[in-house]
Simulated scan of single mutants.
Amino acid sequence: MQKLQLLGGITPAQFLRDYWHKKPLLIRNAIPGFKPLLSLGDLASLASQNHVESRLIVKTDGSWDMLHGPIEALPPHDQREWTMLVQGVNLYNEAAEALLRQFRFIPDARLDDLMISYATDGGGVGPHFDSYDVFLLQAQGRRRWKISAQKDLTLVEGLPLKILANFEPDEEFVLEPGDMLYLPPHYAHDGVAEGECMTYSVGFRSPSFQELGENFLQFMADSIDLPGRYADPGLTPAKNPAEIPREMLSTIAEELNKVRFTEDDITIFLGEYLSEPKHNVFFTGPENPLTMGRFVSAAGKKGVALSPKTLMLYRGKNLFINGESFAVSRTDKAVLAALADERALDGEAVAGASEDVLEALYAWYTDGWIVLR
Rank of each mutant, 00 (worst) to 15 (best):
T262K: 04
T310H: 06
A299E: 01
Y314L: 05
G303I: 00
M248L: 08
S201Q: 06
I252T: 15
R315Q: 15
P227Q: 01
I224N: 08
D225K: 10
P241V: 06
L311Q: 12
T236G: 05
V281M: 08
P241M: 00
I244G: 03
A221Q: 14
I244Q: 12
H189M: 10
Y230N: 03
A299I: 00
R294S: 09
T267V: 09
Q218G: 09
D265P: 04
K309G: 00
D265R: 10
Y273W: 13
F209M: 13
F204R: 05
S223I: 03
A221E: 11
N257K: 07
G213C: 13
Q210V: 08
H279K: 07
D190M: 07
K302P: 09
T236W: 03
S250L: 11
Y314P: 00
T236I: 13
G234V: 04
G203I: 03
F261L: 00
T310K: 02
T199A: 14
E287R: 09
S297G: 08
D232W: 07
L226H: 11
L290V: 02
L274I: 02
S275A: 10
F283W: 09
Q218W: 12
D225I: 03
I266A: 14
L256H: 13
P227K: 04
L212K: 02
E272S: 15
Y273H: 14
K301V: 04
E254L: 07
F216L: 10
N318V: 15
T291A: 05
N215Y: 08
A299F: 08
D264P: 00
G234K: 09
P245W: 03
N288G: 03
F282M: 06
G191S: 14
K309Y: 04
A253D: 14
D190C: 10
G195F: 14
Y200V: 01
I252R: 07
A193G: 05
L270K: 06
H189F: 04
N288A: 13
K258I: 00
T251F: 10
E196V: 11
E196S: 06
G191C: 08
V304A: 01
F283V: 01
M312L: 10
L313C: 12
H279P: 01
Q210I: 09
V281E: 06
E194V: 11
E247I: 05
F204M: 08
T251I: 03
T199Y: 05
Y230P: 06
R205I: 02
P277Q: 07
D190W: 15
F261T: 01
T291D: 10
G228T: 00
V296Y: 07
N257A: 04
N318M: 14
P245H: 13
Q210A: 13
L313V: 10
P241K: 04
Q210L: 13
E247L: 05
E254C: 05
D264R: 15
F209W: 08
S297K: 13
R229E: 04
A298H: 11
P277N: 04
F282A: 08
S201L: 07
D232R: 11
A221M: 14
P277H: 13
P289S: 05
